[in-house]
């Protein structure tokens, strides 16, 4: 099995929007080198938890630790700087940039992003730039997007945009990826291909994944570990087959939030 060290741990996370308490004490760990699924009925607070981890929202209470560092309240770009990259629920490519350029944005801490180098010392980033192009080309080839590299990203099909999102994240060399519904709205053939890519990245590159997903078949096939959220708290954890036995989980999916509300207090 994988190393059993947690790479990400979320403790007592809370977040309210006005009177709505979206997350009330969610708590779970993601083990390094695992593919962990975050499931739960609509309104369970999955996306809010993702946003809290990634720094897009600030938690009212609780902590997020990533690779031993307390990243609670970090800005999104600081979280990314620590090697934790997230994708969004809807594909959000850079539409008016080419596919290759979409990837070229990704590498962290580029020399040519310093103003002085950008304006006066182009020699400083030329060789780095060449390496990035080579790397981007190799990644595009892996994802079957090589032929589209000089196309504007907005011209890709929905499925290709999903692949581009993943390719763009790989280009950033992350330690961990948080994917918010990566399989939403794509056909079964592509779903299994994205699943294969995730397994390959886990095996070959040692990536850790946290994936919000509704398709339980995919979760069963791809994920090592599943965290169930309901009404903003962790309801259950375990492997998919363990959870299928769990009456509470089944009823949370069937009856929405009522189970969580019943166990409140």
């Amino acid at each position: 099995m994988e190393q059993m060290k947690p790479i990400l741990s979320v403790a007592q996370l809370e977040k309210s929007f006005g009177g709505v308490q979206a997350v009330r004490g969610a708590e779970f760990e993601v083990l390094e080198g695992s593919i962990t699924a975050l499931i739960g009925p609509n309104g369970a607070g999955k996306s809010t938890v993702v946003n809290l981890i990634a720094g897009a929202l600030r938690p009212d209470a609780g902590q997020v630790h990533f690779r031993g560092v307390d990243i609670t309240g970090y800005k999104p770009h600081q979280v990314a700087g620590h090697g934790l990259i997230r994708t969004f629920q809807i594909s959000r490519e850079y539409p008016a940039m080419t596919v290759l350029e979409n990837l070229m944005v990704s590498p962290l801490g580029q020399t040519g992003e310093h103003l002085f180098s950008a304006l006066f010392r182009r020699g400083h980033y030329k060789s780095e730039e060449r390496e990035f192009v080579e790397k981007a080309i190799a990644i595009l080839d892996e994802f079957g997007l090589y032929g589209m590299r000089n196309e504007y990203a907005r011209n890709l099909s929905g499925g290709q945009k999903r692949l581009l999102e993943l390719a763009r994240a790989v280009m950033a060399d992350p330690k961990m990826l948080i994917l918010d519904e990566p399989m939403a709205g794509i056909n079964p053939a592509l779903i299994s291909r994205i699943g294969e890519h995730m397994l390959r990245l886990k095996e070959d590159n040692g990536y850790t994944f946290l994936m919000v997903e509704h398709n339980l078949d995919v979760v069963e096939r791809v994920c090592d570990h599943v965290v169930v959220l309901a009404v903003g708290r962790t309801l259950a954890q375990g492997t998919m087959s363990e959870l299928r036995q769990d009456a509470e989980v089944v009823s949370a999916y069937l009856t929405g939030g009522s189970v969580g509300a019943g166990t409140k207090g």
Binding site: P76, H77, F88, L108
Partner: peptide, 8 residues
């Protein structure tokens, strides 16, 4: 948002 999520 995406640029920010990619460490910019």
């Amino acid at each position: 948002d995406v640029a920010e999520a990619f460490g910019k």
